[in-house]
Design a binder for these strands. Structure first.
Lengths: 249, 249
DNA sequence: TTGAAACATGCTAAAACACGCATAATCAGA
DNA sequence: TCTGATTATGCGTGTTTTAGCATGTTTCAA
């Protein structure tokens, strides 16, 4: 087997799996690990891959983590916020959960939008109330130290009495098999109550959370009207969701 | 699994949830906690995450309300906060209003105080919940754009159902002739409901608000159990109140 | 104050590595 | 095709990295 042929094979493996193990290549091609190591070293010097202990990983795969991830995630969340804003119409009644994406949204809402917001997040409420044409109503209750949203029976009770046009929820886990999932029982209860209180449901999820599952189920995919991510709707990453009965944004 | 791959996974978890627990990562990836700890330590040294006891948190995760925002008459308000803290005992149930003094108080509460706080102010709630031994319950309702507290009929209704040991209220106007007064009808209604819900009432006022009157009456002086100012109790400025049936602090 | 969890540290085994060297494969020019 | 030069490959040796474990200590929360 020629050297170039071999390196092309390795390159293909890396493009396929984002990484290779020296031992795997060695076994697959029946060559010594030394040879693989030499190949990887050479390819790394040419900038084709990133050499790491035990093998190599794709350059593109590793790239996002070198960048300042704070800015990366934040701009994604601002992109999402811009998409959500298109769903909002005058005189709507909207119910929102918490999370940093929701706070970004609250900041980005145009000042001329006239609407009523219910929210279980005091942080979101405080941002929303800065816009003069919004009516902001906090769903009060016990404040969770970890997530900074109101939870508990009192929240559920209050949610039972209201009906809103649109519910905006952040997803913790989201996949085709399991639908929307979460890891905290209390959170699941609150989210379910929020969904019951809404005519339409929009789920916000950055792409990294897609295709991940948590232990507890919040709702099925068919209850969801909109799925909002930072990706373009025709992104291949979203293909599992494209044929489902929900609008991708 | 490659080390870099593992660290990328941890990084993703941190971006998603703003934090990770060593034990969770260990369980998710089936690796020893030692390895996770070493990874987190290494990543912390590279400045990617902030290491904390039990795991790590995102470097970009900042609590939205920095302590360094200048507050008018701050030192006076901190003095007042110190005096109020002396009124607080373990297992008390306390109801508070809003205002910068109350926020200062919330920050200054000792971490070992074990108590339940009801509050109509989301800002106060968010500060209180940072203390681990406190249970914080927001009285929800329409959020006032100007005063940043919850107001309206729903607040009154909820207050009718609770009974607390101590109510802490900031005064807008306060004088011997007119008692406690305020300028906003809605605020007066909420404050009255708060007073009704409390066994004891403590009024907080910086000295310059003493001997001033607003248009609407909140309550008489004889309903007040404690008057807390930044002045010494025997200050001549307080002499009009010294013979009344309230404790000066 | 106390017990459990998280931690630091040192150690060990295994894996991955670098290096030198011998051998095998490849290539260029006769 | 032959031959020498060049390059590539595999192996042995010793080193470094890694991950898990045992240990004693620190930190945290009840």
């Amino acid at each position: 087997m020629l050297k170039d042929e071999r390196q092309a094979f390795i390159m293909r493996q890396i493009n396929l799996h984002n990484k290779v193990l020296s031992t795997d290549i060695s076994a697959m091609l029946n060559i010594s690990e030394d040879t693989v190591r030499r190949d990887l070293k050479e390819m790394a010097e040419e900038g084709k891959v990133l050499k790491v202990h035990g093998g190599a990983i794709s350059r593109s795969f590793h790239y996002p983590f070198n960048a300042d991830n704070a800015v990366y995630a934040q701009s994604a969340k601002q992109q999402i916020a811009q998409k959500i804003i298109k769903l909002l119409k005058n005189d709507m009644v909207i119910l929102t959960g918490g999370g940093t994406t929701m706070i970004e949204l609250a900041k980005s809402i145009p000042d001329n939008l006239r609407a009523t917001f219910f929210t279980i997040s005091p942080l979101v409420a405080l941002e929303l109330v800065e816009h003069r044409n919004l009516t902001v109503i906090s769903i009060g209750g016990q404040l969770s130290p970890s997530s900074h949203v109101h939870m508990g029976a009192s929240v559920i009770n209050q949610l039972a009495d209201i009906k809103v046009d649109l519910c905006l929820l952040g997803a913790n886990g989201f996949s085709v098999q399991d639908g929307m999932t979460d890891s905290d029982w209390e959170v699941v209860q609150v989210k379910r109550a929020m969904i019951r209180a809404a005519k339409k449901l929009a789920i916000i999820s950055i792409a990294e959370k897609l295709n991940s599952s948590q232990r507890m189920k919040v709702c099925d995919l068919n209850q969801i009207n909109y799925l909002i991510t930072e990706l373009a709707p025709d992104n291949h990453f979203l293909s599992p969701y494209q044929q489902l009965d929900m609008e991708l944004l």
